[in-house]
Simulated assay, not measured.
Amino acid sequence: MTDTQSHGVLPSQGIAEMINDDAITLSHPADSDQIQPASLDLRLGDRAWRVRASFLPGERRTMAQRLPDFAMHEIDLKQGTVLEKGCVYLVELREALALPGNVSAIANAKSSTGRLDLFTRLITDGATEFDRVEAGYRGPLYAEISPRSFSVLARPGLRLNQIRFHRGRAALTDSELSALHDDVRLVDGPAHIDDGLGFSVDLDRGKDAIVGYRAKPHTGLIDLDKLGHYAIPDFWEEVRAPEGRIILDPGAFYILVSREAVHVPPDYAAEMAPYLAMVGEFRVHYAGFFDPGFGHSATGGTGSRGVLEVRCHEAPFALEHGQIVGRLVYERMSERPDRLYGADLKSNYQGQSLKLSKHFRG
């Protein structure tokens, strides 16, 4: 890769090239669907540690150097291990990096991970931030995992987070975003563009309709390999909003949905921006990547709602229908991917509305 190549998010074929060039190394052969249109799924390795606190290695320090300060015991994942709610774990990943000097990366939880309130972050050697990989990084990758609502059963090979690679500036300015919306319409209603594309919450879905779900505080275990297996009422309470309003309880976790149907054209990707304190006493969306083709009509979508993973913090908060709760930052691809969300992949959430993770029936 050279500096003469286009700036932007690297597409699926660029990620495959990085694997062939050993810029991404794999301790096990790649899964057939591991490469996504604009990201690479990361897989849990065999070793994990229960740690007493979340931590970062710090500049010029490796994870191996810091682990003795925090590790409580080592865990062999090969037979399957329960990751308990409220605990923090560190897991080696099957992927490592030897990035070129002009390529950086950012990581995020996968959609199903966020919808289980399974807080997952990427860590590198020398890291001073979570989920960020500096250009030119060479070394191993680790996932910090902290189940918040449900204890889970995990095994090697599970894909809980994903990584997106950037070359140069990728994010669109507001003027560029406005021009793109005028050209292809990014949402099905008015476009609220201010440091990204704003989106609001849908709490008016009809009389007595379910507007969301709230995680039950005491539930059974979720085996992350079992898809379409669990009954919704065993883990979730239905949320209704007859007056177009709900009050979020501190510490509770909710699955809600955006009022807008979102569209990500094939030559672009998007990311849910970090929580802003001025929005309210809650955090929206742990899983923030939207792939090229999400909600795109040519790939089986007519706009797809954004599913919102919401956790309330210090004080009860009244959330109103149509309230702006977050924003999407659109990024240009360095080139169009050779596969698109919903078209060439078994995409679980194309054309979605309110939807729990793929582990639940119905």
Rank of each mutant, 00 (worst) to 15 (best):
G58C: 09
L83V: 11
D76F: 00
I24P: 11
I145D: 01
A38S: 12
A53W: 03
A105D: 03
L99G: 14
C87Y: 15
Y142K: 04
A48F: 02
G126M: 12
N102G: 04
Q79F: 07
P37S: 02
E95R: 11
G45M: 07
K78F: 09
Q34M: 05
T113L: 02
G80V: 04
R121H: 14
A143R: 03
A154N: 07
F130K: 10
P68I: 09
G126L: 07
G86Q: 03
L77S: 03
G114N: 07
T124K: 06
R43E: 06
Y137R: 04
H73G: 03
E74T: 04
L56M: 13
N102Q: 12
A38C: 09
G80S: 01
A30N: 03
P68W: 08
I145F: 00
M72T: 15
F70R: 04
L97S: 06
S146D: 02
E59L: 15
F70M: 07
G58Q: 10
T25R: 10
S149Q: 11
R52M: 10
I35M: 02
R115N: 02
S32P: 11
L122C: 07
T25C: 11
F119I: 12
E92L: 06
L99H: 13
K85Y: 01
P100G: 04
D117R: 12
C87T: 10
L97W: 05
N20L: 14
I145N: 01
I106C: 14
A98E: 08
N102V: 04
V103G: 08
R52E: 12
W49G: 00
E74F: 03
A64G: 10
A53H: 12
G86H: 06
P29W: 07
I145Q: 02
G80F: 01
I106S: 14
S149M: 07
N102H: 12
S146C: 07
D69I: 06
E129H: 14
V91I: 14
L116G: 05
P147H: 00
V103L: 08
S146F: 02
E74D: 08
A143M: 01
A127V: 10
S39N: 02
L93Q: 03
R121K: 07
S112H: 15
R50V: 06
